[in-house]
Design a protein around this nucleic acid. Sequence first.
DNA 1: AAATACCTCAACCGCAGGCCG
DNA 2: CCGGCCTGCGGTTGAGGTATT
Length: 234
Amino acid sequence: MEGENQYKKGLWTEEEDKVLLDYIRVHGKGQWNRIPKATGLKRCGKSCRLRWLNYLSPTVKRGGFSEEEDDLIIRLHNLLGNRWSLIAGRVPGRTDNQVKNHWNTHLCKKLGIVKKQPTRKIAKIPQVIDDDDDENQPARFPIDNSNSKLSPNISTNSSFNKSVGAMEKKAKPLDDGVGKASNNYEDHEQVPWMVNKHLCESILFSNDDLMLINNPGFVDFLDAYYLDLTSHCL
DNA sequence: AAATACCTCAACCGCAGGCCG
DNA sequence: CCGGCCTGCGGTTGAGGTATT
């Protein structure tokens, strides 16, 4: 604990940025707590990490959000709630911090959302397709089911179905499927992505970001999935 | 021109989970 | 198994900029 206050706080200077960049160029990312010792920078490892991720990283896109980005964020937020890192993972070049700030300052107003409310609440859990009798089997999403209320565009998008099929196979278990975002919901409430959690996980936690981001069916899938859920719930 | 209110967003904080010895 | 360390996440804060009075 002693020495915690040896670290500087507040905005970074150009000199500090340069020191951090030089260090990362040589040593790469990670092991952030070594940076202050190695460079003499008066910043804690956490602060260095944040500075890199949110500002210095060459993958970070600067400037305002486009209409397309707004649209994607709104749709993803409908499905995921305040899981900013997941949302940001599907908005190329944007960090979770950027997405979160943009949502809180711009999109909430745009959508007329009153803050301090869970973003989306479902009154009661809809039909659960998952079969709990066999935890090893991924839940099935009725993409090819002609009785499904899902948009036909989804069920006929074969390349997208291929992606989803691949994702289904790669589905891996994840705690209780709720994560930290569950803090936003009361116990009796359900969030939509819990319903068919195996498939959601397989998509949202996949590393095949580009396959999904570049797949024109992905966002439509989210929309249709959300509509399908709400049609059951409301 | 000065004071004040409002807005934006970079950065901080606390917590949780993963990893490793 | 346990404890310490590191990383990542979401919520929150507050400095700096801009608009309004």
